[in-house]
Design a protein around this nucleic acid. Sequence first.
DNA 1: CGTCTGGTTGATACGACTCAAATTTGGTGG
DNA 2: CCACCAAATTTGAGTCGTATCAACCAGACG
Lengths: 259, 259
Amino acid sequence: MTLLTAVSGTIPFGAGSAVASKLEAFTRLSADDRAALGGATRNFRYVDARRDVISEGDKPRCVHLVLDGWACRYKQLPDGKRHIVALFVPGDFCDVNVYILKAMDHSIGAITRLKVAMITPDEMNALTAERPRMTQALSWHELVTAAVQREWTLNLGQRSAYERLAHLLVELYLRLATVGRAYDGRCDFPLTQNDLADATGLTSVHVNRTLQELRGDGLIELERKQLHILDLPRIMEVSMFNPNYLHLDHEGRHLDANA
Amino acid sequence: MTLLTAVSGTIPFGAGSAVASKLEAFTRLSADDRAALGGATRNFRYVDARRDVISEGDKPRCVHLVLDGWACRYKQLPDGKRHIVALFVPGDFCDVNVYILKAMDHSIGAITRLKVAMITPDEMNALTAERPRMTQALSWHELVTAAVQREWTLNLGQRSAYERLAHLLVELYLRLATVGRAYDGRCDFPLTQNDLADATGLTSVHVNRTLQELRGDGLIELERKQLHILDLPRIMEVSMFNPNYLHLDHEGRHLDANA
DNA sequence: CGTCTGGTTGATACGACTCAAATTTGGTGG
DNA sequence: CCACCAAATTTGAGTCGTATCAACCAGACG
């Protein structure tokens, strides 16, 4: 048990371990926890880029968990406007417990080609039953997801286009870093300027000009779907980025499985 | 049991029953469920208007449940801007499970004088243990809260000032109606134009002018902290209000305790 | 009766949008 | 390997929604 944990703990990342990395931002997982997580993600499928994983109005029957690629939650307005209300990167659950609801009030779409696990209610129960640490970790995940949503609300409500875009880039960089998909200020960044526009409530034209400003100010490089944050402290400063809402402080270590 | 349920079921509203009304939008509660809810809310306090219930940075030790009055979640930016990211009306929980987190990433403030229950983790466990329907109802509550937060994100991102304010008014009216605090298009509405500005990302000056437009168009009356929605279908139309995100469809009746 | 908070009005400025077109990039098939 | 096409990015010019700044007014309250 100790060995397995130690080994998997040293693997920087790999198929299926993004979830574990994410949950370990809250609490150390035991070998059994990791194994259970692996079991729950055995059932997965691929979704092509720009296709829906599940659409507004559908009855949710399982929990989705992003194993690889990026996805988004979006809502469409009758006048045709689309808004991306959330982004999912590897390791993110798309709503623990959704299957309680009768119908989806939004759609989940793949940004890139997506590898996504489908976890049934029974499997979720099996995952959490007798595993209080796992239960807590999932609650933490939901709380963080809610906190991110609030921060996006704040972002749209109070920040300028420049600050707003900067804030989004920093958030995504940090989230990717916690699941081992970002290093040295660099990460994959598959969003088009159109996606960024839909996520920030700006037009793609204005996103374009604002990104040029960010580049001009020496804060970022962004091309060929690669983001490079050149000056993290400064971009955090200008976007008034307070990382507290990501709740990455490892205080959960008092729940350490291997303590 | 049947008698007690029937009796409490016929009381339109009263101290402590807003929660039950809210949860019953999802599932019928048994007499035992109601009693347990009553027990959990026995420990409450009053908070003066404009005072914090809990502040950013504080360690959350219990779940808060609004019994009477209005409250809000807000976040403050270093440049002094404040944004109200959520509103609470009677019957709303302020984050089931928060106590998992190390520190609040936002503050909860009273809009009016507030009667708020403080429920300890132990009491929450006692409330849900052996009561799967209650557990589900609380999950539903959290899912709806998340859906509302997404809708606010959409609201800020895609709707004009006019649509945005209209949407907010409709949402609050419907939420109050589900807990028996709104009838015939009328409800208490203690928010100042300043609060509305902080919640919609507008300035209070623009909120003022936009409210005048809504009044001029015969959609609402709003004075002396009383809101009167004159034409619900039309204001829903102009604000592109789709109530699906409130998940008020009583399909949960298959879980009816008295079926 | 003065003070304060919340609401209202007017004049002006600017950030972001709109529309339109050009350019670059990435992928595909010949 | 090149030609071609669609998608994504970039640029320019003009407009509009909302912010800003500055008064002023009304009712509540001590």
